[in-house]
Design a binder for these strands. Structure first.
Lengths: 172, 172
DNA sequence: TATTGTTATACTCTATAACTATA
DNA sequence: TATAGTTATAGAGTATAACAATA
């Protein structure tokens, strides 16, 4: 039998649970920051002086470009970022931090680091850097293969029919 | 200055990006399984013969009990689980795997393990177990303190006003 | 023609509230 | 009275499609 002995042995479950926890503490700490953890990441990217078009930011954060528009609307309304037309491509806009945005980023970064230490508390100090390093490598993978993952056997076993219509069925 | 030099130094960003990747590969691999990765985790918990009331499962997966109802509806419709009244508490229902559910779980587990190895490819083989162990400990933390995290300084700096109404403002 | 950004709209997911049945 | 589960509804969050401006 190859099934796991406990949920905890499940990498996916552990990942989701950890992210859930991270989301919670970052929401507490960044409650006043528009967009929460996501807003922070936008500020961090802009503060680094990256190329930072809206599209580039959206791809970096793994969200749709329309979502980035709303996110930046909130950050701009709060006075933390500016949208400046890119002189090299007048379709694009470069996202720049305001002074207030810089201060907010710096402060949020400090708070987040403290919260992260709480998150990482169950680990040995030496392990914490190891985890950061590993997640960093996983997140920045070059993904050279591009080989699409499929597992048709599983598909066939679990359910031959495509079960197209989902959810909301009446009963009783 | 204490701001990070790159997004990649941001633990939150790395976590989110990794989960995004995991979600993608697990969706590919578990496409036919109702509920995707979440459905798999329900099957895995049920297959373990845990207490497994719907509420217990919901808490384990970090979802609302109403979400668990919908999830189990789909799994039951697909013939993978059964809801059996708990003889000890007739309000509750124990979630049991059917034979088809057992087969689907076993197969999904095998496929998922393979997909996880793809995910973990950037790491040394020895590191992979270390990552699993660390995430396991983070996810199963006892959280003895319960001290609520707050960071009022950050709140004050980033935005004194609570900015209550959010999103969808007209422009132009 | 293709791309960036915006807007409106539709859809999906999740949470809230009300209810039934048990305790 | 409180809890497990269900259902309908409302609310987030996200994606789709159409458009303007620019390449």
């Amino acid at each position: 039998m190859t099934t796991p002995q406990s949920v905890e042995a499940d990498l996916g479950w552990a990942l989701f649970a950890t992210v859930r926890y991270y989301r919670q503490i970052s929401e507490d700490v960044l409650a006043e920051l528009p967009g929460g953890a996501r807003g922070y990441q936008v500020l961090a990217a802009a503060g680094r002086g990256d190329p930072s078009s809206q599209l580039a930011l959206a791809q970096q954060l793994g969200v749709d470009r329309t979502v980035m528009t709303y996110l930046l609307d909130d950050l701009e309304t709060a006075g933390l970022v500016e949208r400046k037309p890119d002189p090299a491509d007048r379709r694009a806009r470069r996202i720049l931090l305001t002074d207030a945005g810089e201060a907010a980023l710096c402060d949020a970064h400090r708070c987040l680091r403290a919260a992260e230490e709480t998150l990482l508390e169950p680990l040995e100090p030496a392990e914490r850097e190891g985890l950061r390093s590993m997640l960093h490598r996983l997140a920045t993978r070059t993904d050279p293969s591009g080989t699409p993952i499929n597992c048709t056997e599983a598909a066939a076993l679990t359910d031959p029919e495509p079960l197209p219509p989902r959810r909301r069925r009446a009963r009783r």
